[in-house]
């Protein structure tokens, strides 16, 4: 279980990182290494070069704006958890970060790495989609921005193009009274979820979003979720078409986790 040979580069800027990726099509970015590391050791990923983006200043920036916060892609789960970065929500981000894996993983793992890894059962993709986050990308042909639900194309699949990196993620500001409900069913602490659901109810802004993760493919995203919040059974059809109702117990699992997430809107709406 040792990685195959690779070269290692540590570019100083986003432009250098993109250039390094363009120069060598078999190169791959690495940030915290918490998803890529195991793949390297199992020799499932065999990049010629690792382009380390974790310390690039542009990816470590945090920009607070009136309408939200833009986080550099290399901000770690631990930095969210510890509240060392500003939070445009009433404490949701720290709470989510706290529930990711173990502290050792959170110390290194980054939000950008998590989004690019695009595991449907991971925490950031589901929760940030529920919060209406947008991804900032930089590549050989410039920069662009995508809504997270458009960036995440399916299990372990994203809209990232060759030579492109995620530079940041923008999380819109919630109103003070916004409520967030989040539930995941995991076999143990820090394990990937077997079912998960995140719900945002921001009445002041008129935003109600519900996202179901731990799917086989793309997340189930409900952008106008007021109706399903009142009657979650309306989601049954979408669960079925996503292959999550294959057997009765799986359907009941997802239903339960969805209803727990909706119930949690009330019990867990206060800042952590």
């Amino acid at each position: 279980m040792k990685a195959a040979r690779f070269d290692y580069r540590r570019p100083a800027t986003v432009a250098e990182a993109v250039a390094a990726l363009v120069e060598d099509g078999a190169a791959k970015p690495v940030a915290g290494g918490q998803s890529l590391g195991p793949m390297l050791n199992l020799r499932l990923a065999r990049p010629s070069t690792l382009v380390d983006v974790a310390k690039i200043p542009g990816l470590r920036r945090v920009e607070e704006r009136a309408d939200g916060v833009l986080y550099g892609a290399a901000i770690t789960h631990a930095e969210f958890e510890d509240g060392v970065v500003p939070d445009p929500t009433p404490g949701f981000l720290a709470r989510i970060a706290h529930g990711i894996a173990y502290r050792a993983v959170r110390n290194r793992g980054t939000v950008g790495g998590s989004l690019v890894h695009a595991d449907p059962a991971a925490d950031w993709p589901t929760t940030l989609t529920a919060l209406g986050a947008r991804v900032a990308l930089a590549g050989p042909s410039g920069t662009r921005e995508l809504a997270l639900e458009d960036f995440l194309l399916g299990a372990f699949s994203t809209a990232l193009e060759d030579g492109e990196i995620v530079t940041g993620v923008f999380v819109p500001r919630c109103s003070a009274g916004a409520r967030f409900g989040y539930r995941k069913s995991c076999r143990k602490v820090g394990e990937f979820a077997e079912a998960m659901c995140a719900v945002l109810a921001d009445d002041v802004r008129g935003v109600h979003r519900l996202v179901i993760g731990a799917t086989e493919g793309r997340h189930i995203v409900v952008t106008e979720a007021k109706g399903v919040l009142a009657d979650p059974r309306l989601l049954d059809e979408r669960l079925a078409s996503a292959g999550l109702a294959a057997d009765p117990s799986t359907l009941r699992l997802h239903r339960k986790v969805i209803s727990q997430a909706i119930e949690a809107l009330n019990s867990e709406s206060l800042p952590a």
């Binding site: 076999r187 057997d247 117990s249």
Partner: peptide, 10 residues
């Protein structure tokens, strides 16, 4: 959990 919920669902 899978075995428990499968038995309960059944």
């Amino acid at each position: 959990p899978r075995r428990v919920r499968a038995a309960v669902a059944a």
